Every structure is written in C-alpha cells, then in structure tokens.
Amino acid sequence: MKSLDGKVALVTGGARGIGAAVVRAFAAEGASVLITDVLVDEGRALQEEIGAPARFYAEDVTNEADWTAAVTAAEREFGPVSLLVNNAGILEFGSIEETDPRTFRHVIDVNLFGPWLGMRAVAPSMRRAGGGVILNVSSTAGLMGYAALDAYVASKWGLRGLTKAAALDLAADHIRVCSIHPGPISTPMTAGMDDSVIADQPIARYGTPEEVARMAVFLAAEATYSTGSEFVVDGGATTGSTVLAGSED
C-alpha cells in the first residue's frame, strides 16, 4: 500500500518547479491530484505526463471564486480534498524605497492572501473527508531577513504566522497545518541567481524540487504528531555563518 492511497490533493502553482515535483511525488504515492496554476500549457502538459491520477484546473489563487471552483472541481473528479499544498508564489526584487506599492501588494496577494483564501475554501471539504493536511510553502525568507526582498520576506513571514493560527483554528477538525521553508532550490524562480547564494551554506549546492517534495510527502503521510510547525529544506542555510571561523583578533 502506498502512503497516500485514497487521498485527494490540491496543489497550487503545480505546473512547474516545486509544485510539479510535489504533484509527481503525491501521484506516485497513490494520491489523486488536482494541479492548479495560471500556467495553462505547462499544467496541461503535466496532466498528460501523469495520466489518470491528475487533472489540471486553471486558477488564480488571489481570486476567491477560482478557489471555490477549484475545490468543487476536485470533489467532482476525485472526492473531498484531504491534502492542500499552497505552493503558488512570486518573487520580486526591490528594497523598501525601490518597490512600488502596487508590486508590494501583488506579492502579498499571491503569497499570503492566496493561501488564506485556499485554507478557507478547502476547510469544509476536509471536514467531509474526515480531516486533512495543509502544507504552506513558505521560505527561509520566512525565518530570516533578506535585503532587497522586502515584499517577499513580509509575505513569507506572514505565511509562517498564518500557518500557526490556522493550525489552532482547524485542529478540532483533525486538520494539521504545517509550513515548509525551502532555501535555494533550482527552479525557474531562482534561474537568474549565481552560486554566491549557496557558497557559505553547509551543503554548498542548490537543492532540487524533488528534495522539497519528499518533505511534503513525509508531512502529508507520516508527521501525524506535527501541526503549526516549520520544516526547513535549505542545505543548512539558516544554521549560521562560517565567515568568522578561523579569524584572528
């Protein structure tokens, strides 16, 4: 028996990168998966790749009506939703003075408001399923600050806090809520970054989407005593710095 047999998952931002790796991993473990994304061509291609356990549905996570329709589609295709992965996210570079208000609000809308809408939309379905697991994909930027990423950092810290509040709100319904905090992962979002990003971390390489997906499978299937918790997949990036090691007074 596979670890997610009989589970119904909804994965946002599922067309590529971490989201696509989670979709593949969940399907391989027996789950039926509704892939949602604004990237229609890539989402449909992934559905074709995986076959019967997957369906694609175009969704803007900042749109409440899209969320209602996505949950309805998942229930129509597979049954009540028992797993939600809030993975859709965007990154915009810019300091406080460089970032314009519209850009800041857009990052917050996608990265924080979207997951809030998603949890709100899926909770009744999870009750019908008898419980479930919500995984919010935050970032190491939800654990520490980064210069020139003000909107992104704010959104990911907010998602970390929202995860804890939701875990308390939904515990009585047997719904666990955890956050995943990837570090530098090799995805289209990080394609323009150079190796200086990973040079000082203990595991000095970019992570793979599959490594994050394995964490998601563990949390969905095995971490039955964990809720409101952060799980870090970052090559040790948040462990500390070796810059001063061996320096002289």
Rank of each mutant, 00 (worst) to 15 (best):
K2Q: 14
S3T: 13
S3G: 05
D5Q: 09
L10K: 02
G14R: 03
A15Y: 00
R16C: 06
G17A: 11
G19D: 00
A20M: 03
V22F: 07
R24C: 05
A25C: 10
F26R: 01
A27S: 10
A27P: 00
A28Q: 05
E29D: 15
E29S: 13
E29A: 14
G30I: 13
S32F: 03
L34P: 05
D37Q: 06
L39H: 04
D41G: 12
L46W: 07
L46M: 08
E48T: 15
I50S: 04
I50G: 03
I50F: 07
A52F: 00
A52Y: 00
P53C: 03
P53S: 06
R55H: 10
D66W: 04
W67P: 04
T68L: 14
A73Y: 01
A74H: 09
A74S: 01
E75Q: 13
E77N: 11
F78Q: 00
G79R: 02
V81E: 07
V85K: 05
N86D: 01
A88Y: 10
L91T: 14
L91G: 15
G94H: 06
G94E: 08
S95F: 08
I96A: 11
T99M: 12
T99P: 09
D100M: 13
F104W: 11
H106P: 02
I108A: 12
I108E: 09
V110M: 05
N111T: 05
L112T: 01
F113H: 06
F113Y: 12
G118V: 02
M119H: 09
M119T: 07
R120Y: 12
V122F: 13
R128K: 14
R128S: 15
G131I: 04
G132H: 07
L135I: 10
L135T: 00
S138Q: 02
S138I: 08
S138G: 06
Y146V: 11
A148M: 03
A148L: 10
L149E: 10
D150I: 14
D150L: 15
A151N: 04
A154Q: 10
K156A: 01
R160V: 14
L162D: 10
A165P: 01
A167L: 12
A167G: 10
L168W: 07
D169H: 14
D169N: 13
L170N: 02
L170Y: 04
L170W: 04
L170G: 06
D173W: 13
H174W: 14
I175N: 05
I175F: 15
I175L: 08
R176I: 04
C178L: 03
S179E: 03
I180K: 07
P182A: 06
P182W: 06
P184F: 15
I185M: 06
T187I: 13
P188S: 08
P188E: 06
D194V: 07
D195N: 08
S196R: 13
Q201I: 04
Q201K: 09
I203T: 03
G207N: 07
P209I: 08
P209D: 09
E211S: 10
V212A: 05
A213Q: 06
R214M: 09
M215C: 12
L219I: 08
A220N: 04
A221L: 07
E222G: 01
E222A: 10
G228Y: 05
S229T: 05
S229N: 02
E230F: 11
V233K: 08
D234Y: 14
G236M: 03
T239N: 09
T239R: 12
S241K: 00
V243E: 01
L244I: 12
S247T: 14
